[in-house]
Design a protein around this nucleic acid. Structure first.
Lengths: 196, 196
DNA sequence: CGAAGTTTCGTCACTATTGACGAAACGCGG
DNA sequence: CCGCGTTTCGTCAATAGTGACGAAACTTCG
């Protein structure tokens, strides 16, 4: 498994792997790069590569965790008393659409990636997002009934990702447009979960 | 890829692989069975195995497609004018919880399976379910706005799977209980999507 | 500094999946 | 029944991903 780095040494190895991967990916595409090449460039064995990243594609989304953490934190810092929907909308709007992140994704030419990999990753993100939201709801309503909270967390998440789905098909794919769609999607559920 | 069988011959091979897999899986567990053993038992090569099933775990859920088709059909046969929520609830209630299917899953001792495989599969099912529902909504409202319909389809799907999630954690894991939870979860969204 | 404990690596051996290519089996018209 | 186009297979060769085990590197403590 991808053991979370412990010592300085592994941190160095990890960095080397990341750098090597980025270079190769950009130069010859993701699918055109073998895990072995990356490992070799980084001066380690293939086996070691897999000690740091669960998969080759893991490298692509290696930074995504920080985004999730940011989201969790943003939610927890929302003023008490604010409804969940408003909190989620606020968090989404405040999200630091880091230029690096966006550029990087763009540079990697998503189309060149095996679509199924992206789909897979998106589902993972969606699942994590739902969990984060459920945790948030649990915090707000320690006594809330499980089914209700779960439905709320998952429905709201579904709305956000529905917005994303529509956005991906839309002609104008700008960040503001995505934000607008997200807000609109969440507005639909606002009355339903107003009480949370 | 798993080419959909064309001729009688491939149908035979497919059946042989299925049978061999079932025997092995039941006897030594899924993870304890290699794709090669299955292929050998069926009298074919490993490569041929992969011509019929995209993966070893595919065999486990090979029948699931028929369930999805059933659901799509059930939705399309609901009386015009009935709300989506009611339609979905009706479809879920009418679902032929085939004893074979349930028993099979039970026999395979889900716990013995690598959980991530099941999670992966569940996400796929959820995605397909959402698409089926979106198609249904498109049929009912050819002119409906995309975002609204997508949010509805995904939210309702989320509710159903939220019920499943709660059910999986609950002490009583009976079919009627799952149905009850599903109905209750969908009831939450009923007012929101009553107009569809 | 040096021994003991911990973490990271390399090596070996396997299973899972997939692309390419040619041979064998099948199904149909003559 | 035979020839021919189609489909299914087998063989070969790679890459992806993992478990087990022992050696090397790093830390901590005396």
């Amino acid at each position: 498994m991808a053991t979370p780095p412990q010592t300085a040494r592994s941190e160095r190895t990890r960095a080397a792997l990341r750098k090597a991967a980025t270079v190769r990916f950009l130069a010859q595409g993701v699918e055109g790069t073998s895990a072995e090449e990356i490992a070799a460039d980084a001066g380690v064995t293939l086996r070691t590569f897999y000690r740091h990243f669960t998969s080759k594609h893991d490298l692509l989304f290696a930074d995504y965790d920080s985004g999730l953490q940011w989201f969790r934190k943003a939610l927890s810092e929302r003023p008490a008393g604010e409804g969940v929907v408003a909190s989620v909308q606020a968090a989404i709007f405040a999200f630091p659409y880091d230029v690096d992140a966006v550029t990087q994704i763009a540079n990697l030419r998503i189309d060149a990636l095996d679509p199924s990999r992206i789909v897979h990753h998106m589902r993972q993100v969606q699942s994590d997002f739902a969990h984060a939201l459920l945790d948030h709801l649990h915090r707000l309503h320690p006594e809330g009934d499980e089914l209700g909270l779960t439905v709320a967390a998952r429905s709201l998440t579904a709305a956000v990702f529905a917005a994303m789905e529509v956005w991906l098909r839309a002609p104008e794919r700008s960040l503001p447009e995505l934000a607008r769609l997200s807000r609109e999607a969440l507005d639909v559920l606002e009355p339903t979960f107003r009480h949370y």
